[in-house]
């Protein structure tokens, strides 16, 4: 066990270094910050003497109308009740999240296919330590991403006299735990398939499925779509990290700290279960292609 952890630590260090030497990571960070910049300046441009009104800014008008149409006015009012940072945090995080997760899924599947992991496993490392290393690398770089976003938003908040907001502050740890569970699903997709394309397709399918369930939960459509979404949520909602993310945020909104903590605990447990499932699959399938 200690050997596996040690191997995972050494490989994680190596993989982290490889990623920070790759331009893709920086481009994803910049893309995220630019999205945040657009949302923050758009928000300040949509304020007049009576307060925030998304119709006043072209970017927000488009986004706001689309969201009101899909999720209702109450959703939009709550989203911007403390400022733009809650939306900006999630939107800005997406480029880095997809870069890190897809990169890990691709790399692991590719290395498995070309026999690199098999080669390593003749030494002190095994398949589990390889994917754990990948997971640790993702978590470390996610922490770095969140720190960068936090600093950027804090500067923007101070400069524009806007508050970061309590829901933003609660979302900072929550985004880490939610993405952690999603990274675990990425590993599961990588170990369960035979090539990189299949792994990425499966992973994207899982993420999109979870997103659709979440959006269905919040959408104001009625009738068939609503019923279908309700059925999917009942069947597969408990598998989705986004379900527990929503549970935690709902707890924050209604002033129930217990819900927030429960959500985080369940996300951690879910991560552990998915990683354990990946370990079992690696044990059964091995690390040959």
């Amino acid at each position: 066990m200690n050997l596996r952890i040690h191997a995972a630590r050494v490989i994680a260090r190596r993989k982290t270094l490889e990623t920070v030497l790759n331009p893709g990571f920086y481009i994803a960070q910049t893309a995220g910050l630019l999205l945040g910049y657009i949302l923050i300046t758009g928000f300040t441009g949509a304020i007049d003497s009576s307060g925030f009104s998304f119709e006043l800014n072209p970017v927000y008008d488009f986004v706001g109308r689309a969201m009101v149409g899909a999720f209702g006015r109450t959703f939009v009012d709550k989203l911007f009740s403390e400022g733009p940072f809650l939306l900006a945090l999630y939107i800005s995080f997406l480029p880095s999240f997809f870069y890190l997760s897809i990169n890990s899924v691709f790399r692991f599947s590719f290395e498995k296919k070309v026999g690199a992991i098999e080669l390593i496993s003749y030494g002190p490392a095994d398949g589990t330590s390889c994917f754990l290393a990948s997971y640790v690398k993702d978590i470390l770089l996610t922490l770095l991403t969140i720190a960068i976003l936090f600093i950027y938003f804090a500067v923007a908040a101070f400069n524009n006299n806007i508050v970061l907001g309590s829901r933003f502050l609660y979302s900072v740890p929550l985004i880490l735990f939610t993405s952690s569970a999603l990274y675990a699903y990425g590993i599961l997709a990588a170990v369960a398939t035979d090539n990189a394309v299949s792994a990425i397709s499966l992973y994207m399918g899982i993420v999109i499925f979870f997103l659709i369930i979440l959006m269905g939960t919040f959408s104001i459509v009625s009738g068939y779509v609503s019923t279908l979404s309700g059925v999917f949520t009942r069947i597969a909602g408990w598998l989705s990290p986004l379900f527990y993310w929503n549970l935690s945020l709902t707890g924050v909104e209604s002033g129930k700290a217990g819900f927030f903590i429960t959500g985080i605990v369940i996300l951690s447990v879910l991560t552990g279960i998915v990683l354990f499932a990946s370990h079992l699959i690696v044990g059964v399938k091995g690390v040959r292609k």
């Binding site: 007049d48 003497s49 009740s81 403390e82 400022g83 806007i162 309590s166």
Partner: peptide
């Protein structure tokens, strides 16, 4: 309407 929300004005 949201308690503890912030009112931004120009």
């Amino acid at each position: 309407k949201t308690p503890h929300s912030v009112l931004y004005v120009d």
